[in-house]
Nucleic acid binder design. Structure first.
Lengths: 341, 341
DNA sequence: GATTGGAATGTAACTGGTTACAAATTTTTG
DNA sequence: CAAAAATTTGTAACCAGTTACATTCCAATC
């Protein structure tokens, strides 16, 4: 069933049918009704390709996510989708599986499909990859920290440095001094910022940092477990551990339990992410609550501004979102400042 | 940059350029090379719409998921995507948010976009909705239990009844008798099957079931917490609880802890799903491990068989996948049969 | 009654490709 | 060397819409 058949059935030309669909005000009321009846009856849907060929627009945006099994990322996705849905756009959600090659493959595939805009979440892409997208005239927004330095593209991200500073500062405030950090190895920038925040908090108190207290780990539960074991084996064991993710904290806490070390009595913990489970493990985890959904919403709004405004300039925008420290049991309650652990 | 410009630059007709892209063997080697060079240099990508207009094929499948924040569903999605990727297809992942209207909206949107096939995961759609998809000539596969009885559509699902039977059977085997069940309220069929499995196991041992031991709950951690409180308040408190999801178990275990009831010493638990966290909470949760990824893979393979075979008949196929019981600490170790709790 | 203007509709060019068929060129064969 | 066959390339119709421009029709104005 195509427009010609509809036109024939209604006894009009294809132009009139097309007009009913695109500029209904320019068609006489009775003609319009007759055509709408035929359309209804014959269940006609305009061919997507023919339409696209004329408008060169898909009402679709592409969304690259590092890992769809990670609910934190999916919260961003949901924020983006909420906005897209409102705007009557559809979202192409792609699972990059933390692999640049997969990201590149998806980017090519999405450009081919003529999507109207790109949102890259915590991307591993290089500057030149993103250049390639922009050269096609497709607006791009970065959400979350990305691996490389990407020029002239707006970005929405969390103030990780500030959040880490606040987290470690909290540990210091309640009396801890020997504070270690376990940080995930990708993407680098984000973790560097977290370490910076950690260092800044220590430095501010004149606490000299110890290299063996700064442990890199694969960002998984297992990674946290392994890194924690290294900390356990130290002569001078830390009394508090800040981890760059909740997953790492879970693994690390698990390691403590396996070695008979009590949390938070012997080692305090502060995580990062506030994933659902952090409120359910024993002890409940003090952690940084990130505004993931909001990040998606803000990123999507920015993208649609770019799509609507066409040629206009948003390139150097950088939006920093603040996060809150969610205080629970894992960091103990030792409020007496001055007592040194 | 379109095919005409490429043709002009290479000094050939558009037909030859098109052939280089679609039937390269039919073009003379040196002409082909010249054209490929021009394509490379000018970064030409064939227009997706024009191409689609001819082939009427998008190499895209649509995937409806009830909730993208639930990693179990995302494992199915990943299984599907793995297969699709291999086949050089792209996947449209849609988040239905457990709402029929949203599902319907996505179905319309995807049909409009001329996707080549549909996979509905735990769908809420009615039979007539699916009829509508089939009438458009688009192959459909159901993955996981769906709400209504949908006729003449192949389905891949887990043998929930068998799995629940095995789970409760295990509790009975290690000596429990007062066994309650907390089940989530959607989608109904799946939970009915789980209850059936539970009942079957009890009946087989001649244990009379008590209505107050069968608790419905919203399938969330909070829902489990609330349902567990109802069980705690009973005169005759159950000694073991089987939950239709791990989330429910987490909430229920949390409730126990809050009321000073020890798990598994006073109440044993068996969950369902084996989500990542079930191995990390205290005590580690005994649970049913579902082959989610496999379900996706099998469903996708089935869909591609249908796409490739076109008119052929797969309609009445029903594939049942078996799951395993993952035994951990939450159900205790009381092996002496005969000791009645 | 002729002229003008506006609304409704139709004709045909255009979007950017694919491909059947025709034509030109090259290679093989008698 | 011509004829036949095979290879390579071009012409133009086609996919299913949109829309600029042309045309028709009818009422309002002079």
């Amino acid at each position: 069933m195509n427009i010609k058949e509809v036109a024939k059935k209604a006894g009009v030309s294809v132009a009139t049918v097309s007009r009913v669909l695109n500029h209904p005000e320019s068609v006489a009321p009775d003609t319009k009704q007759r055509i709408l009846d035929v359309i209804e009856e014959s269940e006609y849907t305009p061919n997507w390709f023919a339409r696209g060929l004329n408008f060169n627009k898909t009402d679709t945006i592409g969304l690259l996510i590092p890992n769809i099994l990670n609910p934190s990322y999916m919260e961003i996705a949901k924020g983006i989708e909420d906005v897209a849905h409102q705007k009557n756009y559809t979202t192409f959600l792609c699972n990059a599986e933390n692999a640049v090659e997969k990201e590149r493959r998806y980017v090519d595939s999405l450009i081919k499909r003529r999507i109207d805009g790109f949102i890259l979440v915590s991307s591993l892409l290089e500057n030149e990859d993103v250049e390639g997208i922009k050269k096609q005239g497709i607006p791009v927004v970065l959400v979350g920290e990305n691996k490389s330095d990407i020029k002239d593209v707006p970005i929405v991200r969390i103030d990780c440095e500030g959040a880490s500073y606040k987290a470690v500062r909290h540990l210091i405030n309640i009396g801890y001094k020997n504070i270690a950090v376990i940080y995930g190895s990708t993407p680098d920038r984000e973790n560097r910022r977290k370490i910076d925040g950690y260092r800044q908090a220590l430095a501010e108190e004149g606490i000299t940092e110890r290299e063996e207290y700064i442990q890199e780990a694969i960002n998984t539960i297992e990674g946290g477990y392994i890194a924690a074991k290294r900390l356990i084996d130290l002569k001078r064991r830390p009394r508090a551990i800040f981890t760059s993710s909740d997953l790492l904290a879970f693994g690390a806490i698990d390691a403590m339990k396996d070695h008979g070390i009590k949390v938070p009595e012997e080692v305090a913990f502060v995580g990062f992410d506030n994933i659902r489970m952090s409120n359910l493990i024993d002890p409940k985890l003090t952690t940084v609550e990130k505004p993931m959904h909001k990040m998606g919403v803000v990123g999507a709004r920015l993208l649609f501004d770019m799509i609507d405004a066409k040629g206009e300039e948003f390139t150097n925008r950088e939006i920093l979102l603040q996060s809150k420290l969610k205080i629970r049991k894992s960091c103990g309650h030792r409020e007496r400042i001055g007592e040194i652990f």
